[in-house]
């Protein structure tokens, strides 16, 4: 039991990274845009989030730096980076109507480049390595609940021992669920992703919705990259640490069937699968096989949902298709 609790707790750390990536992409895809640039966006979020906190600390000095301000700045910087990246994607696919797959891949190349370039260039500029002080590091990974809650047997560790970002992601997932199912704007956004011509005919500004969803979604995904850098990677730029994380987030979107609430347990499950080999030994399953399980499971989900042809469990109907009103 305690091994299981420990596994869950550990899975949450990496799961949080995925959750941000996935939630952002869900938002984007709900508008009908398949942004395959998540990988690049998360790289950019990681680099700029770190830069935000690092330069803040450098300017005010380690002693004067506040963990809270650093968290806010890191989130803002990452969000902005992701938003700018997806704005480029949005402009090319929404306004200029280029192929979404190809543009997304281009964004992956571009964003990975920008992220690594920024991360490395900071190092070159600073000489040596770029790392946050322990003070901020603690702030980033400290838990927000008091000890007595954490000490409740079983659920204490499982529910209250995580860092701030997990709870932020949790709130975000709940908020997004509420947004999609209960709010007018959420309903309209879903309509845009399902059938832009219908939404358009109903007087919804599809372009605006697509842009906003893509840009905000990209910003949220980017926060995931930042969370990776400031939690698991130890507050220092990591050249290839984020490699594959964005794609895992894309897989998770499918696995969750485009539902934010599923993203909560889905990301923890994926996080668990990525570290399971360290904790649960099954002799006949080699380590690397654990790591491909998320993808295998996703493929199975994809196939089953297409076989069953359940109307409710399908990708947004216009996913990947650009909309042009006067198309004949």
């Amino acid at each position: 039991m305690s091994a299981l609790i420990a596994l869950v707790v550990a899975a949450v750390t990496f799961g949080t990274v995925l959750m941000f990536g996935t939630l952002g992409e869900i938002l984007t895809e709900k508008s009908g845009n398949l942004n395959l640039g998540v990988e690049g966006i998360m790289y950019m979020g990681g680099a700029f989030g770190l830069a935000g906190a690092f330069y803040y600390e450098k300017i005010v000095g380690e002693a004067a730096s506040s963990g809270f301000v650093a968290i806010i700045l890191a989130i803002l910087a990452a969000f902005l980076a992701g938003a700018v990246a997806s704005a480029i994607y949005g402009f090319i696919t929404i306004t200029l109507r280029a192929n979404q797959n190809v543009t997304g891949l281009a964004l992956t190349i571009f964003g990975t480049g920008i992220g690594q370039f920024t991360g490395e260039f900071m190092r070159v500029k600073e000489g040596g390595f770029v790392a946050l002080s322990n003070h901020l590091k603690d702030a980033f990974s400290s838990t927000i609940f008091p000890d007595f809650l954490k000490n409740i047997p079983v659920i204490g560790k499982m529910l209250f021992s995580h860092n701030f970002f997990f709870y932020l992601a949790l709130i975000l997932a709940l908020a997004m669920h509420f947004f999609f199912s209960r709010t007018k704007t959420g309903l309209y956004l879903r309509a845009v992703g399902e059938s832009p011509s219908t939404a358009d005919a109903a007087g919804i500004n599809t372009t605006k919705y697509k842009y906003l969803a893509t840009i905000i979604g990209g910003g949220i995904s980017a926060i995931g990259g930042m969370v990776y850098i400031v939690t698991t990677a130890g507050c220092v730029w990591n050249h290839s640490g984020l490699s594959g994380v964005g794609w895992l987030a894309v897989a998770l979107v499918i696995f969750c069937m485009w539902r934010p609430l599923n993203a909560i347990w889905g990301s923890v499950l994926f996080g668990a699968l990525m570290i399971m080999y360290l904790r649960v030994r099954i002799i006949f399953i080699p380590t690397e096989i654990y790591k491909i399980l998320p993808y295998v499971v996703t493929v199975i989900v994809l196939v089953i949902s297409s076989m069953r042809n359940n109307k409710e469990k399908q990708p947004p109907a216009s996913l990947g298709v650009n909309y042009f009103r006067e198309e004949r």
Partner: peptide, 26 residues
């Protein structure tokens, strides 16, 4: 079954790459 090929082929990449990792260490 008209399964979405974009997402399917994407997933297939990481499955086979994982298999190479396994061969490499196994």
């Amino acid at each position: 079954w008209n399964t979405n090929e974009t997402l399917f082929t994407l997933m297939m990449n990481y499955i086979i790459i994982g298999i190479v990792s396994w061969l490499q260490g196994g």
